[in-house]
Simulated assay, not measured.
Amino acid sequence: MASRADSAADPDPFLSGLWRSMMEIHNAVLRDIESELAKHHRISLNEYDTLVNIPPQGIRLRELKNRVVLTQSAVSRVCDRLVERGLVTRLPVAEDARGAVIQLTDAGRKLQRRAARTDAEVLERAFASRLSRAQLESLRDILVQLGAGDHPESSGEG
């Protein structure tokens, strides 16, 4: 008879397969998005993630670091590249010598909108067009339950 410890160590093939499928879909969609962003807009996925997380009024660099899926130093490097390309400005904060506010330039806003449309097209093609609205809503509900729906974009409210 197997002990409880032995059975806990045995992987559940269903769960392992499900997790593997989720990772493969995630990777495939990210590759498609990255490819389309590079092809149509000459930006990386990290640059896009940074651009879409800059609100119209701008954002403190330290707050931006909490919004993107990058390390602190990577966000700074991405912002430096975006400044060099004229897509964002980095403004000093008077009361904080090390602080900075990141704001989109007109060119950055235009690129942000165009790239967001490209992203939406890839998402539609990659999985949204393959599922019914009810299935998409169920998927959203599951992700919210798992804790991945903590972002306003996931709420379905736009």
Rank of each mutant, 00 (worst) to 15 (best):
A2D: 11
S3L: 12
D6G: 07
D6S: 03
S7E: 11
S7V: 13
S7C: 10
A9M: 12
A9D: 04
D10E: 15
P13N: 00
F14G: 08
F14P: 12
F14L: 04
L15W: 02
L15Q: 12
S16H: 12
S16N: 09
G17Y: 14
G17C: 07
L18Q: 02
R20L: 14
R20H: 15
S21G: 09
M23K: 15
E24Q: 13
H26Y: 14
N27S: 09
N27W: 13
A28Y: 08
A28D: 08
V29A: 04
R31L: 04
R31T: 14
D32C: 14
D32R: 14
D32K: 15
E36T: 01
E36A: 08
A38P: 06
H40S: 13
H41Y: 06
R42E: 10
R42N: 15
I43T: 06
L45C: 11
N46T: 06
N46W: 01
E47N: 03
E47R: 06
Y48K: 03
T50C: 10
T50E: 08
T50L: 08
T50Q: 12
V52F: 07
V52L: 05
N53L: 02
N53H: 06
P56H: 10
P56A: 13
Q57I: 15
G58M: 11
G58C: 13
R60L: 14
R62D: 15
L64T: 09
K65T: 09
K65P: 03
N66L: 03
R67Y: 11
V68S: 09
V69C: 04
Q72K: 05
A74V: 00
V75C: 06
R81P: 15
R81Q: 06
V83K: 02
E84N: 12
R85V: 00
R85G: 02
R85W: 04
T89Q: 08
R90C: 15
L91Q: 15
D96V: 13
A97F: 14
A100E: 12
V101F: 14
V101M: 07
I102S: 07
Q103S: 07
T105G: 14
A107S: 09
A107N: 12
A107V: 05
G108R: 07
G108D: 10
G108M: 04
L111E: 05
L111V: 04
R114E: 14
R114L: 10
R114F: 01
A115Q: 03
A116D: 08
T118A: 13
T118N: 10
T118L: 11
D119Q: 12
A120L: 07
E121W: 05
V122Y: 11
V122K: 11
V122A: 12
E124D: 13
E124V: 00
E124M: 01
E124G: 06
R125Y: 13
R125W: 11
A126H: 03
A126N: 02
R130T: 02
L131R: 00
A134P: 00
A134R: 01
Q135A: 03
D141M: 06
I142Y: 03
D150T: 06
H151S: 07
P152W: 02
E153A: 05
E153Q: 02
S154H: 05
S155H: 04
E157F: 10
G158S: 05
G158A: 06
